[in-house]
């Protein structure tokens, strides 16, 4: 389970929707606390959005 969670936040979509925004923020500020907060918000939004996308895809494909 740990490995799956790690994959969810580090691979595939995460390289575009987590890594790139986080790297952008790191370029704009050196404040470690701010970086931590923004990273948390990005990961939270990513989790919510992609869970919704996954549910929607299943809904469409299964014609529920």
């Amino acid at each position: 389970m740990k490995e799956l969670i790690k994959q969810f936040y580090t691979e595939g979509f995460a390289t575009t929707f987590i890594d790139k925004p986080v790297n952008y923020i790191k370029k704009k500020t050196n404040n470690k606390k701010k970086i931590k907060i923004y990273t948390f918000i990005i990961k939270l939004l990513y989790t919510l959005i992609f869970i919704l996308i996954a549910v929607y895809i299943l809904y469409k494909k299964l014609h529920i």
Partner: peptide, 10 residues
């Protein structure tokens, strides 16, 4: 459909 969603992330 499940393969598709699983393959998206894992």
């Amino acid at each position: 459909a499940f393969y598709f969603v699983i393959g998206m992330f894992f």
